[in-house]
Design a protein around this nucleic acid. Structure first.
Length: 303
RNA sequence: GUGGAUCCUCUAC
Protein backbone atom coordinates (compact mmCIF):
# COMPACT_ATOMS: atom_id res chain seq x y z
CA UNK A 1 0.00 0.00 0.00
CA UNK A 2 2.95 2.30 0.63
CA UNK A 3 3.94 1.87 -3.00
CA UNK A 4 0.46 2.45 -4.32
CA UNK A 5 -0.35 5.62 -2.36
CA UNK A 6 2.13 7.97 -4.06
CA UNK A 7 1.01 6.79 -7.50
CA UNK A 8 -2.60 7.29 -6.54
CA UNK A 9 -1.78 10.77 -5.28
CA UNK A 10 -0.15 11.66 -8.58
CA UNK A 11 -3.08 10.38 -10.62
CA UNK A 12 -5.57 12.31 -8.51
CA UNK A 13 -3.53 15.46 -8.76
CA UNK A 14 -3.41 15.10 -12.55
CA UNK A 15 -7.16 14.60 -12.63
CA UNK A 16 -6.86 11.09 -14.03
CA UNK A 17 -9.60 9.62 -11.92
CA UNK A 18 -10.48 6.71 -14.21
CA UNK A 19 -6.93 5.45 -13.79
CA UNK A 20 -6.98 6.17 -10.07
CA UNK A 21 -10.18 4.17 -9.74
CA UNK A 22 -8.60 1.27 -11.66
CA UNK A 23 -5.55 1.34 -9.43
CA UNK A 24 -7.77 1.35 -6.36
CA UNK A 25 -9.56 -1.76 -7.64
CA UNK A 26 -6.19 -3.39 -8.17
CA UNK A 27 -5.28 -2.64 -4.57
CA UNK A 28 -8.45 -4.33 -3.36
CA UNK A 29 -7.96 -7.34 -5.69
CA UNK A 30 -4.49 -7.89 -4.30
CA UNK A 31 -5.96 -8.09 -0.85
CA UNK A 32 -4.20 -4.94 0.32
CA UNK A 33 -5.87 -2.68 2.85
CA UNK A 34 -6.32 0.94 1.82
CA UNK A 35 -5.30 3.44 4.49
CA UNK A 36 -6.21 7.05 5.20
CA UNK A 37 -3.78 8.34 2.56
CA UNK A 38 -5.31 6.07 -0.08
CA UNK A 39 -8.77 7.45 0.55
CA UNK A 40 -7.40 10.95 0.97
CA UNK A 41 -5.93 10.88 -2.52
CA UNK A 42 -9.18 9.62 -4.05
CA UNK A 43 -11.32 12.14 -2.20
CA UNK A 44 -9.04 15.02 -3.27
CA UNK A 45 -9.18 13.93 -6.88
CA UNK A 46 -12.92 13.47 -7.04
CA UNK A 47 -13.62 16.72 -5.21
CA UNK A 48 -11.39 18.65 -7.57
CA UNK A 49 -13.22 17.39 -10.63
CA UNK A 50 -16.55 18.10 -8.96
CA UNK A 51 -17.58 14.46 -8.69
CA UNK A 52 -18.99 14.80 -5.21
CA UNK A 53 -20.98 11.57 -5.43
CA UNK A 54 -17.79 9.59 -5.79
CA UNK A 55 -16.02 11.70 -3.18
CA UNK A 56 -18.82 11.06 -0.70
CA UNK A 57 -18.73 7.33 -1.37
CA UNK A 58 -15.01 7.23 -0.63
CA UNK A 59 -15.52 9.33 2.47
CA UNK A 60 -18.19 6.98 3.81
CA UNK A 61 -16.12 3.92 2.95
CA UNK A 62 -13.23 5.48 4.81
CA UNK A 63 -15.35 6.06 7.91
CA UNK A 64 -16.76 2.50 7.68
CA UNK A 65 -13.24 1.14 7.82
CA UNK A 66 -12.65 3.13 10.96
CA UNK A 67 -10.12 5.42 9.30
CA UNK A 68 -9.92 9.00 10.49
CA UNK A 69 -10.05 11.69 7.82
CA UNK A 70 -7.72 14.59 8.55
CA UNK A 71 -8.09 18.31 8.14
CA UNK A 72 -7.14 18.18 4.53
CA UNK A 73 -9.77 15.63 3.57
CA UNK A 74 -12.49 17.66 5.27
CA UNK A 75 -11.26 20.81 3.58
CA UNK A 76 -11.29 19.42 0.07
CA UNK A 77 -14.79 18.08 0.68
CA UNK A 78 -16.03 21.47 1.89
CA UNK A 79 -14.37 23.15 -1.08
CA UNK A 80 -15.77 20.59 -3.51
CA UNK A 81 -19.33 20.83 -2.20
CA UNK A 82 -19.26 24.62 -2.42
CA UNK A 83 -17.95 24.53 -5.95
CA UNK A 84 -20.67 22.06 -6.86
CA UNK A 85 -23.18 24.52 -5.38
CA UNK A 86 -24.11 22.25 -2.48
CA UNK A 87 -23.90 24.61 0.48
CA UNK A 88 -25.90 22.33 2.77
CA UNK A 89 -23.43 19.46 2.45
CA UNK A 90 -20.45 21.77 2.74
CA UNK A 91 -21.73 23.11 6.03
CA UNK A 92 -22.63 19.62 7.24
CA UNK A 93 -19.06 18.47 6.60
CA UNK A 94 -17.73 21.47 8.49
CA UNK A 95 -19.85 20.57 11.50
CA UNK A 96 -18.86 16.93 11.25
CA UNK A 97 -15.24 17.97 11.32
CA UNK A 98 -15.69 20.05 14.44
CA UNK A 99 -17.59 17.23 16.16
CA UNK A 100 -14.54 15.05 15.58
CA UNK A 101 -12.52 17.68 17.43
CA UNK A 102 -10.48 18.62 14.41
CA UNK A 103 -9.29 22.20 14.36
CA UNK A 104 -10.15 24.05 11.14
CA UNK A 105 -7.14 25.91 9.78
CA UNK A 106 -6.62 28.83 7.41
CA UNK A 107 -7.36 26.78 4.35
CA UNK A 108 -10.57 25.37 5.81
CA UNK A 109 -11.83 28.82 6.75
CA UNK A 110 -10.81 30.21 3.39
CA UNK A 111 -12.78 27.53 1.57
CA UNK A 112 -15.85 28.38 3.63
CA UNK A 113 -15.46 32.12 3.18
CA UNK A 114 -14.82 31.93 -0.53
CA UNK A 115 -17.60 29.37 -0.93
CA UNK A 116 -20.21 31.52 0.80
CA UNK A 117 -19.08 34.54 -1.21
CA UNK A 118 -19.50 32.70 -4.49
CA UNK A 119 -23.00 31.71 -3.42
CA UNK A 120 -23.73 35.36 -2.80
CA UNK A 121 -24.04 34.79 0.93
CA UNK A 122 -21.65 37.46 2.05
CA UNK A 123 -23.14 37.78 5.53
CA UNK A 124 -22.43 34.09 6.13
CA UNK A 125 -18.89 34.60 4.88
CA UNK A 126 -18.40 37.46 7.32
CA UNK A 127 -19.88 35.34 10.10
CA UNK A 128 -17.34 32.59 9.39
CA UNK A 129 -14.57 35.19 9.31
CA UNK A 130 -15.59 36.45 12.75
CA UNK A 131 -15.84 32.92 14.10
CA UNK A 132 -12.36 32.26 12.75
CA UNK A 133 -10.95 35.27 14.58
CA UNK A 134 -12.67 34.21 17.81
CA UNK A 135 -11.11 30.75 17.44
CA UNK A 136 -7.71 32.42 17.37
CA UNK A 137 -6.95 31.82 13.71
CA UNK A 138 -5.37 35.06 12.51
CA UNK A 139 -6.50 36.21 9.07
CA UNK A 140 -3.89 35.86 6.34
CA UNK A 141 -3.73 37.61 3.00
CA UNK A 142 -5.39 34.77 1.12
CA UNK A 143 -8.45 34.96 3.35
CA UNK A 144 -8.66 38.72 3.04
CA UNK A 145 -8.34 38.39 -0.72
CA UNK A 146 -11.29 36.00 -0.76
CA UNK A 147 -13.43 38.38 1.28
CA UNK A 148 -12.40 41.41 -0.74
CA UNK A 149 -13.29 39.58 -3.93
CA UNK A 150 -16.65 38.54 -2.50
CA UNK A 151 -17.48 42.13 -1.57
CA UNK A 152 -16.39 43.44 -4.99
CA UNK A 153 -18.37 40.85 -6.90
CA UNK A 154 -21.47 41.63 -4.88
CA UNK A 155 -21.07 45.29 -5.74
CA UNK A 156 -19.88 46.45 -2.33
CA UNK A 157 -16.75 48.17 -3.54
CA UNK A 158 -16.60 50.53 -0.55
CA UNK A 159 -16.69 47.62 1.86
CA UNK A 160 -13.95 45.93 -0.12
CA UNK A 161 -11.87 49.09 -0.05
CA UNK A 162 -12.26 49.36 3.74
CA UNK A 163 -10.93 45.84 4.17
CA UNK A 164 -8.16 46.63 1.71
CA UNK A 165 -7.16 49.77 3.61
CA UNK A 166 -7.03 47.78 6.86
CA UNK A 167 -4.60 45.15 5.57
CA UNK A 168 -1.41 46.77 6.79
CA UNK A 169 -2.62 47.41 10.31
CA UNK A 170 -3.18 43.66 10.53
CA UNK A 171 0.52 43.27 9.89
CA UNK A 172 -0.09 41.92 6.39
CA UNK A 173 0.80 43.20 2.95
CA UNK A 174 -1.38 43.27 -0.16
CA UNK A 175 -0.06 40.97 -2.89
CA UNK A 176 -0.62 40.73 -6.62
CA UNK A 177 -3.92 38.95 -6.10
CA UNK A 178 -5.16 41.60 -3.68
CA UNK A 179 -4.44 44.31 -6.23
CA UNK A 180 -5.85 42.46 -9.19
CA UNK A 181 -9.01 41.78 -7.19
CA UNK A 182 -9.47 45.42 -6.16
CA UNK A 183 -8.53 46.73 -9.60
CA UNK A 184 -10.96 44.37 -11.29
CA UNK A 185 -13.61 45.44 -8.78
CA UNK A 186 -13.15 49.10 -9.63
CA UNK A 187 -13.06 48.46 -13.38
CA UNK A 188 -16.26 46.42 -13.29
CA UNK A 189 -17.89 49.12 -11.17
CA UNK A 190 -17.05 51.55 -13.97
CA UNK A 191 -14.27 53.31 -12.08
CA UNK A 192 -11.33 52.48 -14.31
CA UNK A 193 -9.33 55.52 -13.19
CA UNK A 194 -9.31 54.32 -9.59
CA UNK A 195 -8.05 51.01 -10.97
CA UNK A 196 -5.14 52.78 -12.62
CA UNK A 197 -4.45 54.65 -9.38
CA UNK A 198 -4.07 51.36 -7.55
CA UNK A 199 -1.94 50.12 -10.41
CA UNK A 200 0.46 53.02 -9.73
CA UNK A 201 0.26 52.52 -5.96
CA UNK A 202 1.25 48.89 -6.13
CA UNK A 203 4.33 49.69 -8.16
CA UNK A 204 5.32 52.39 -5.68
CA UNK A 205 5.05 49.75 -2.98
CA UNK A 206 7.30 47.47 -4.95
CA UNK A 207 4.66 44.94 -5.94
CA UNK A 208 5.26 44.24 -9.62
CA UNK A 209 1.95 43.76 -11.41
CA UNK A 210 1.56 40.48 -13.22
CA UNK A 211 -0.74 39.48 -16.03
CA UNK A 212 -4.00 39.27 -14.04
CA UNK A 213 -3.59 42.90 -13.00
CA UNK A 214 -2.94 44.01 -16.56
CA UNK A 215 -5.81 41.93 -17.85
CA UNK A 216 -8.24 43.45 -15.37
CA UNK A 217 -7.24 46.95 -16.51
CA UNK A 218 -7.28 45.93 -20.15
CA UNK A 219 -10.81 44.69 -19.71
CA UNK A 220 -11.73 47.93 -17.96
CA UNK A 221 -10.48 49.98 -20.91
CA UNK A 222 -12.38 47.75 -23.33
CA UNK A 223 -15.59 48.06 -21.33
CA UNK A 224 -15.28 51.82 -21.68
CA UNK A 225 -14.62 51.23 -25.37
CA UNK A 226 -11.36 53.13 -24.93
CA UNK A 227 -9.44 50.97 -27.37
CA UNK A 228 -6.53 53.39 -27.68
CA UNK A 229 -5.80 53.14 -24.00
CA UNK A 230 -6.28 49.39 -24.18
CA UNK A 231 -3.76 49.09 -27.01
CA UNK A 232 -1.24 51.23 -25.13
CA UNK A 233 -1.48 48.96 -22.15
CA UNK A 234 -1.32 45.92 -24.37
CA UNK A 235 1.96 47.05 -25.93
CA UNK A 236 3.41 47.44 -22.44
CA UNK A 237 2.25 43.91 -21.72
CA UNK A 238 3.88 42.57 -24.87
CA UNK A 239 7.16 44.19 -23.92
CA UNK A 240 7.04 42.75 -20.43
CA UNK A 241 5.94 39.37 -21.69
CA UNK A 242 2.64 39.49 -19.77
CA UNK A 243 0.31 39.10 -22.71
CA UNK A 244 -1.48 35.78 -22.40
CA UNK A 245 -4.29 34.17 -24.34
CA UNK A 246 -6.70 35.89 -21.94
CA UNK A 247 -5.24 39.30 -22.83
CA UNK A 248 -5.83 38.63 -26.51
CA UNK A 249 -9.34 37.40 -25.76
CA UNK A 250 -10.14 40.60 -23.87
CA UNK A 251 -8.89 42.78 -26.72
CA UNK A 252 -10.64 40.74 -29.38
CA UNK A 253 -13.90 41.02 -27.48
CA UNK A 254 -13.28 44.75 -27.01
CA UNK A 255 -12.85 45.30 -30.73
CA UNK A 256 -15.93 43.25 -31.49
CA UNK A 257 -18.03 45.29 -29.08
CA UNK A 258 -16.86 48.41 -30.88
CA UNK A 259 -17.98 46.73 -34.11
CA UNK A 260 -14.40 46.47 -35.34
CA UNK A 261 -14.62 42.87 -36.38
CA UNK A 262 -11.75 43.26 -38.83
CA UNK A 263 -9.41 44.43 -36.07
CA UNK A 264 -10.46 41.47 -33.97
CA UNK A 265 -9.84 39.14 -36.86
CA UNK A 266 -6.35 40.46 -37.47
CA UNK A 267 -5.58 40.17 -33.75
CA UNK A 268 -6.45 36.50 -34.02
CA UNK A 269 -3.88 36.20 -36.80
CA UNK A 270 -1.32 38.12 -34.76
CA UNK A 271 -1.66 35.81 -31.80
CA UNK A 272 -1.14 32.78 -33.98
CA UNK A 273 2.00 34.41 -35.41
CA UNK A 274 3.22 35.11 -31.90
CA UNK A 275 2.69 31.48 -30.96
CA UNK A 276 -0.05 32.26 -28.47
CA UNK A 277 -2.56 29.47 -28.96
CA UNK A 278 -6.17 30.65 -29.32
CA UNK A 279 -8.47 28.73 -26.98
CA UNK A 280 -12.19 27.96 -27.01
CA UNK A 281 -12.93 31.43 -25.59
CA UNK A 282 -11.10 33.09 -28.49
CA UNK A 283 -13.10 31.15 -31.04
CA UNK A 284 -16.42 31.48 -29.21
CA UNK A 285 -15.93 35.25 -29.15
CA UNK A 286 -14.99 35.58 -32.81
CA UNK A 287 -17.66 33.21 -34.06
CA UNK A 288 -20.36 34.73 -31.86
CA UNK A 289 -19.65 38.21 -33.18
CA UNK A 290 -19.51 37.12 -36.78
CA UNK A 291 -22.97 35.64 -36.23
CA UNK A 292 -24.22 38.81 -34.57
CA UNK A 293 -23.24 40.92 -37.56
CA UNK A 294 -24.70 38.38 -39.97
CA UNK A 295 -21.40 37.10 -41.39
CA UNK A 296 -22.51 33.51 -41.22
CA UNK A 297 -20.26 32.22 -43.99
CA UNK A 298 -17.18 33.57 -42.27
CA UNK A 299 -18.40 32.22 -38.92
CA UNK A 300 -18.64 28.75 -40.44
CA UNK A 301 -15.22 29.09 -42.06
CA UNK A 302 -13.58 29.89 -38.72
CA UNK A 303 -15.51 27.06 -37.08
C1' G B 1 6.11 14.65 5.71
C1' U B 2 2.25 14.89 1.77
C1' G B 3 -2.65 15.85 -0.88
C1' G B 4 -6.16 21.22 0.32
C1' A B 5 -7.84 27.69 -0.06
C1' U B 6 -8.09 33.53 -2.86
C1' C B 7 -7.71 37.18 -8.56
C1' C B 8 -8.51 38.27 -15.09
C1' U B 9 -11.52 36.97 -20.77
C1' C B 10 -16.34 34.60 -24.34
C1' U B 11 -21.09 32.19 -25.25
C1' A B 12 -25.10 29.45 -23.43
C1' C B 13 -27.68 27.84 -19.19
Amino acid sequence: IFCYNPILTCLSKAGKMEEARALFSEILEKGLTPDALTYGALICGYSKEGNMMAAAMCFNEMLDRGLLPDNLVYTVLIDGYFKAGNVIEAVAIFHHMKEKNLVPDHVTYCSLISGFCKQGEIEKAVQVYQEMCVEGVEPNIVILNALIDGLCKLGNIQGARQLFDGIEEKGLAPDNITYSTMIDGYCKAGNVSEGFKLFDDMQLKGVEPHSFVYNALLNGCCREENMDKALNLFHEMLQKGFATVVSYNILINGFCKSWKIQEAQSLLETMIEKQVLPDHVTYTTIIDWHCKVGMMEEAYRIF
